[in-house]
Simulated scan of single mutants.
Amino acid sequence: MNRFDNQTVLVTGGTGGQGSSHVRAFHAEGANVVIGDIDAERGAALADELGTRVRFTHLDVTDESSWSASVQAAESAFGALNVLVNNAGVQNPPAPIENTDQATWSRILDINLTGTFLGLKVAAPALRRAAGGTIVNIASTMSLGGTAHYAPYVASKWAVRGLTRTAALELGRDHIRVNTIHPGVIATPFIQEPAAGATMAIADFYSPDPFAIPRLGEPTDVTRLLLFLTSSDASFITGSEYVIDGGLLLGPALQTETA
């Protein structure tokens, strides 16, 4: 028996580098998967690729009515919603705070923070109707410290941490667990390609050479942790934060010579 047989999972940003990895893994583990994304072409293609037990729903995470329609689509197609992965997110073009325009600030917070808030708000009643479930909010190692030139992104992800803890307190008695994952530098277009309006990507600022594990992370590294946190194996875990960064936050590893 697969870990997610007879369960329905909604993954936002489900066509991206990490999102599509999550979608494929949940599906392989037996889940009904709802791909939520604004990219209809890629979403439909991924749903067609996987075939059975998959639906694509157009989801603008900044729009509460879009959230309601996506959750309703999951329940209509599969009977219940059991897992929400708040994965959708965007980064800002790197710039000092004094050179960051308010429109950029608002856009990043609308998607990364308000999108997560609305997901919690709309999905909670559905998970309650299913007699419980789990939510994982994808944050970032940038939510555990400051990062120059990424103020909107950093602020949004710091706020997701507090939102997650509050939701865990509010929903725990309803058998709904809420946790965060904090990926470091993961080898996806989100990290390796410049944001709109930028000339440098996040990966350009980070070399994995000093990491304790000297490589970039892979989407599957995050996916394996996500599958654990949303499974029954993690039934006593809520309000917790899981860092997966190869030791990025530990500081530089001691370089030693080998014989």
Rank of each mutant, 00 (worst) to 15 (best):
D60I: 05
G51D: 01
D48C: 09
R173C: 10
V122W: 09
A40E: 10
S21R: 10
G30Y: 10
T62C: 12
P194V: 09
Q192M: 15
F78M: 07
E41V: 15
D245S: 04
S235A: 09
V34K: 06
S140R: 07
A151L: 07
S21N: 11
I191R: 11
H175P: 07
V34F: 13
A40P: 06
Q91C: 07
L127S: 00
I138K: 08
E193P: 09
A159H: 10
A126P: 03
I108A: 06
R53A: 12
G184L: 00
E170C: 15
A77I: 01
A139R: 05
I213Y: 05
L118D: 07
P252C: 03
A73S: 14
G17A: 15
V61E: 00
S232P: 04
P210C: 06
A195I: 01
R42L: 13
V85G: 01
S20P: 04
V23W: 14
G14E: 00
H27R: 10
T114Q: 14
S106A: 11
V122I: 04
W67K: 14
L216P: 00
S143G: 01
L46G: 05
T52F: 14
T188V: 05
S235K: 10
L118C: 14
I135K: 00
A155M: 05
Q91H: 06
F78E: 01
S106R: 15
L229C: 06
V11I: 08
D60F: 07
A167W: 00
P96Q: 00
S140N: 10
N32A: 02
T220Q: 10
D63L: 01
T57C: 09
I191V: 13
G217M: 06
M200H: 05
T199I: 05
L84Y: 02
E75R: 13
T147V: 11
G13T: 04
S240R: 14
A131Y: 13
P214D: 05
V122T: 02
R173I: 11
G16K: 03
V61Q: 04
P214I: 15
I186Y: 06
G133I: 01
A234M: 06
G51K: 01
E64K: 14
E218I: 03
T57E: 08
L84F: 04
L250R: 05
L120N: 00
R215H: 08
T199K: 15
N82M: 09
A201H: 11
G162Y: 04
V71Q: 06
I244R: 08
A47E: 15
L248H: 13
S76T: 12
D63V: 02
G119R: 11
I97V: 12
G89M: 05
T220D: 10
S231Q: 02
L10E: 00
A28M: 08
F190M: 11
S76H: 10
L249I: 09
